[in-house]
C-alpha cells in the first residue's frame, strides 16, 4: 500500500535526476558537478524505495544501501581527485580541464 500513487514518487525521482543531470551539464565548478552527481543518485534512491514499497519487496531498499555505499566511495575518491587536481592545476574550472582533447 503506497500513498500517494507510485507515479508521484517516480516523477519526484525523475525530477531530482534531471536536475542533477542539468547540474553536471551546466555548472563549471567541479565541486558543484560532484554535488549534482549526488543529486542523481538521490533521485535513483527515491525510485528504488518507491518501487520497493509498491511491490512489497525489500530488495529495493537493500539496494539503496549499496547505492549509499557507492555514493560515499564516489564522494571520497572524487574529492580526492579534486584535491590532487587543484594542487596540480590551480583550478576547479572544468573548462580548463580538457586534456581529453584529441
Amino acid at each position: 500500500m503506497i500513498i500517494p500513487a507510485l507515479e508521484y514518487y517516480l516523477v519526484l525521482g525523475a525530477a531530482l535526476f534531471i536536475i542533477g543531470l542539468l547540474g553536471v551539464l551546466v555548472r563549471r565548478n567541479l565541486l558543484i558537478v560532484f554535488m549534482s552527481i549526488e543529486l542523481i543518485l538521490l533521485g535513483a534512491n527515491v525510485t528504488f524505495v518507491g518501487f520497493a514499497v509498491a511491490l512489497d519487496n525489500m530488495l529495493g531498499q537493500a539496494f539503496v544501501i549499496f547505492s549509499l555505499t557507492v555514493a560515499a566511495a564516489e564522494a571520497a575518491v572524487g574529492l580526492a581527485i579534486i584535491v590532487a587536481l587543484s594542487r596540480h592545476r590551480d583550478t576547479l574550472n572544468v573548462d580548463e580541464i580538457n586534456t581529453l582533447k584529441g
Binding site: L12, V49, Q61, L68
Partner: peptide, 26 residues
C-alpha cells in the same frame, strides 16, 4: 519522503551518510 514510504532506516541512513558524512566531506 522515505519516512512517508515507511522506510525509516533509509531515512536515517541518508541523513547520517549524506548530511553527516558526504556533505561534510565536501
Amino acid at each position: 519522503i522515505f519516512i512517508l514510504l515507511r522506510a525509516e532506516f533509509l531515512a536515517a541512513a541518508h541523513i547520517i551518510i549524506y548530511a553527516g558524512a558526504i556533505i561534510v566531506l565536501f
